[in-house]
């Protein structure tokens, strides 16, 4: 299905956020996730069903002031 990952359209064969992260190569990465602007904790990713058009954010540690 077509979803948006960090602002880019992607076609992913994934039913859940957990599956999507595996496909994107973030399975083991230290990242935090949100779907449609709402935080999804790591423990809930495999239960979070995706729907076409969902906006997924995958955020990682970055420099900051």
């Amino acid at each position: 299905m077509r979803v948006e990952v960090n602002g880019e359209a992607r076609d992913l064969d994934a039913r859940t956020l957990g599956e999507a992260l595996e496909l994107l190569g973030y399975g083991e990465a230290r990242v935090a996730t949100a779907v449609n602007g709402a935080f999804v904790p790591a423990a809930a990713r495999c239960d979070r069903q995706l729907a076409p058009g969902d906006r997924i954010e995958v955020l990682a540690p970055m420099q900051g002031g």
């Binding site: 973030y26 990242v31 935090a32 990682a60 540690p61």
Partner: peptide, 27 residues
């Protein structure tokens, strides 16, 4: 102080760097 941004490849390496600083983190 640290932040979160969209993962574009550098996040995991930066995480290793900040861990090595050995200081408390304030995101």
């Amino acid at each position: 102080t640290v932040s979160l941004r969209r993962e574009s490849g550098g996040g995991q390496a930066f995480w290793e760097i900040v861990k090595q600083l050995g200081v408390r983190l304030l995101p």
